[in-house]
Design a protein around this nucleic acid. Sequence first.
DNA 1: GTCTATAACTTGATAGAC
DNA 2: GTCTATCAAGTTATAGAC
Lengths: 197, 197
Amino acid sequence: MTRRREGATSELTLIERARRTQLIEVTIELVADRGYAGASLAAIAERAGITKAAVLYHFPTKAAVVRAAHEHALAALVADVAAAVEAAAPANRPAAYVRSMVGHLREHPRHTRMIIEAMVHDDGEHDPAARWGPLAQLIDAARLARGASGDIDPRTTAIIVGGGIDAIVAEQLHDPDYDTATAAEHLVDMLETTISR
Amino acid sequence: MTRRREGATSELTLIERARRTQLIEVTIELVADRGYAGASLAAIAERAGITKAAVLYHFPTKAAVVRAAHEHALAALVADVAAAVEAAAPANRPAAYVRSMVGHLREHPRHTRMIIEAMVHDDGEHDPAARWGPLAQLIDAARLARGASGDIDPRTTAIIVGGGIDAIVAEQLHDPDYDTATAAEHLVDMLETTISR
DNA sequence: GTCTATAACTTGATAGAC
DNA sequence: GTCTATCAAGTTATAGAC
């Protein structure tokens, strides 16, 4: 009975890749629907149409399944935002960051819940600086490019804006009619005013 | 074997009130330390120094214990913020709201975790408008008092600022040295600039 | 008013048949 | 490669003794 290691995706057969992908997808759906607590091994197996033991054949532990699901959702977000940011001029990158992140989260609501759940629940392992660090750097660079001279704290600005993004997305999760694009522009306005000082 | 109903606190004896209070306190601590998932009936009973059955004598279900703990933390926050807001002139109330909420959450970190956990996890029952509604009203009133005329959306402003408050407090939870007072002033600045238009 | 004892169930995980 | 069968440990909750 061979047991799949957590990494080493390069050595997996096609059907194993498919199963892993399927398990990651149902786990994301499950976490989005019922939260971390509702994503039990039994529930994951049921949604995938296989047994608990079969799930644990493809992943060493339940935690590994959830971790893989989280990493999948996060990687998609990071790739999307990074592409949008790099396509913008340095002075406009903070705005591009806000717009693309709100846009991505709106377009992938289940990924969003997965990421939020992991952020809140992943005990200790989560580093907040990983969240606000990149935006803080973009703000610094943008201010340099614009020649702004006031003394703002990029860390706090990034933290506040990050929280604003989360809140906008959370609102849209509850009220699908909420206009996140306009809200994002509102947030961009506030950010622009702050960093232009 | 009489069974306590959930409400009707007025009819409780003194020692029952003490037990209820104690159970609420240990539950808040437990949720703050280990999250919703870690706050099992067994854990609550152990911290309170009684048995699981004894806990369920004072509350009908485990969910009722957690609900009571959440309501306790929330009531303290609301009372504190309401007092600070009412003490301020209408034009300054949005700022008072931000300062007092950040201040309260900083001074009661365990209550904070409890409230966040409930916000994220309380399935569906939670109404986001209850969060941004009051601040949106304060913003409206402040703009009226100042004679501001631009067209901002109080709802979105309130949502963004609420998210900013959460993010500041979350950061302080992870880095106790983070200066939330200064961060709150930063957020107040952004808010003031927005609503003065 | 608080306990012991236990019911009834779910959890994640393993061993071994096929 | 996926299954059945089983596991020990955890969960909430109840019944009834004291």
